[in-house]
């Protein structure tokens, strides 16, 4: 664990999570969730869990974000909250 990197990454993770659930556009929320996911990936690499980090980068951030974007384009971007 490197506390200087933690000090940068952990507040950014919280900001991304709160922004992803408050923004009023589903496409923006999806992209913010992807950014959240990549920040988490950097957090795993920094904590020494490199196998978790690249699984997260490939599966969690990449494929999951692609699924979300595809579903949002098939359905609708509108959200009330």
């Amino acid at each position: 664990m490197i506390w200087q990197l933690d000090l940068i990454l952990l507040p950014l993770v919280i900001i991304c999570a709160i922004a992803a659930i408050t923004v009023r556009d589903l496409f923006s929320a999806t992209v913010l969730l992807g950014a959240f996911s990549f920040l988490m990936c950097m957090l795993w690499a920094e904590m020494g869990a490199v196998d978790v980090a690249f699984t997260e980068a490939a599966v969690g951030a990449g494929v999951s974000t692609a699924f979300f974007i595809a579903a949002v384009f098939v359905t609708t971007r509108r959200t009330k909250d």
Binding site: I21, L26, S37
Partner: peptide, 20 residues
């Protein structure tokens, strides 16, 4: 949240919190 995609995003964040 009332939107279903927002609920799903919340579920994902919950999952990553447990992984953290």
């Amino acid at each position: 949240k009332h939107n279903l995609v927002k609920k799903l995003i919340g579920m994902n964040i919950f999952q990553w919190a447990i992984i953290l």
